[in-house]
């Protein structure tokens, strides 16, 4: 097996594993840039996965090939509404944002498993029948070497995720909305003085993060796990959070980190098939994303600074 064959296995599977992380991490960028910590990404992904799978199972006959896409949209809407709970608690009711996020995670898992047992009479749904299609991207897939590695035989949502990262970058850094979002996260009082509605911006940001985490969860469940149970989402939300921090709260950085974590994940799974990796215990690959995140935060890999007002509720008139 030569080097190119190895890449041919690893790179597509890295992109495959990274897609849900990219969506969710981008959601995290919105929320945290507005100053609201979102530990609840994990729970929002759970909701997305649950809704995505249930919709897919229920309506697969009616909608055919469209099902996974509609399921993704519904998951997006439901997770976004679910994230309102976090928004209300942490923005309007001044709850500790971390605690509220923890509660979101508990609630999402409890509620979705409760509903699964109620609807299916068992702790696990059936396998999803209709998944996303794989495509070759026109023109780009014809490029020698790079084409087959990056642009062939991939799932459409993976490509959407990467394109979305650039859109989010544009929105956050190049539009008035993005400027307001960032200002609310850095210095809410100054933003308020300039006539920006801090609470409204934060609500919008949290709901966007819910929507994107919902998409992330639903495509994870549709493509990777293909069913929903208590173990479907086990840490992907936290890994997305890690990717966002490792990417220094920057959309493109978050995407890069998510791709890298996807790479580590795919290595730990397909590594057994690759000669020189077979001898590396998988535990090193499994813990790599987390260790790297800690190192990044510590400043060994360039300094990562959080938005200044992150984690503090904004109370009008209080200095």
């Amino acid at each position: 097996m030569d080097f190119f064959n190895i890449l041919e296995i690893i790179i597509p599977s890295a992109i495959f594993f990274a897609a849900p992380l990219i969506f969710t991490a981008l959601g995290g960028v919105f929320s945290e840039r507005s100053g609201v910590v979102n530990i609840g990404l994990e729970g929002l992904m759970v909701i997305g996965a649950f809704v995505g799978v249930v919709f897919n199972l229920t309506f697969a006959d009616q909608f055919g090939d469209l099902t996974p896409w509609l399921a993704m949209l519904v998951a997006m809407v439901v997770a976004s509404l679910f994230s309102l709970l976090h928004a209300v608690a942490s923005i309007s009711l001044r709850a500790d944002q971390v605690v509220s996020g923890v509660a979101i995670n508990f609630l999402a898992l409890g509620l979705s498993l409760f509903l699964v047992k109620m609807m299916y009479g068992k702790g696990q749904t059936d396998q999803v029948e209709v998944g996303f299609d794989k495509i070759d991207i026109p023109i780009l897939s014809k490029i020698p070497i790079i084409g087959p590695l990056f642009f062939s035989n991939g799932y459409i949502p993976s490509y959407i995720a990467i394109v979305l990262a650039f859109i989010v970058w544009y929105v956050i850094y190049k539009t008035p909305f993005g400027l307001r979002l960032r200002s609310v996260g850095e210095h809410p009082m100054a933003a308020d003085t300039m006539g920006i509605n801090v609470a409204r911006m934060r609500y919008i940001a949290v709901m966007i993060s819910g929507a994107l985490a919902g998409i992330g969860g639903s495509i994870y469940a549709t493509i990777i796990s293909r069913d929903f149970s208590h173990a479907t989402i086990s840490g992907q939300g936290f890994m997305a959070l890690a990717a966002m921090i490792f990417g220094k709260w920057h959309p493109l950085g978050a995407m890069g980190a998510a791709l890298f974590f996807g790479f580590a994940q795919s290595l730990s799974i397909v590594g057994q098939a690759i000669p020189f990796l077979r001898d590396v215990p998988t535990v090193y690959l499994l813990i790599a994303p987390y260790v790297l995140t800690i190192l990044a935060l510590t400043g060994f890999i360039g300094r990562a600074d959080a938005p200044k007002a992150l984690g503090t509720p904004y109370i009008k008139g209080k200095r």
Binding site: A95, D96, S100, A103, I104, F106, L109, F114
Partner: peptide, 22 residues
């Protein structure tokens, strides 16, 4: 009743304690 009901109750209790402002 599925056991997960209790997880829902616990999550809501945390929410209410956290939102003690209300």
């Amino acid at each position: 009743v599925p056991t997960e009901l209790v997880d829902i109750v616990i999550a809501l209790i945390i929410f209410f304690v956290a939102s003690s402002y209300l």
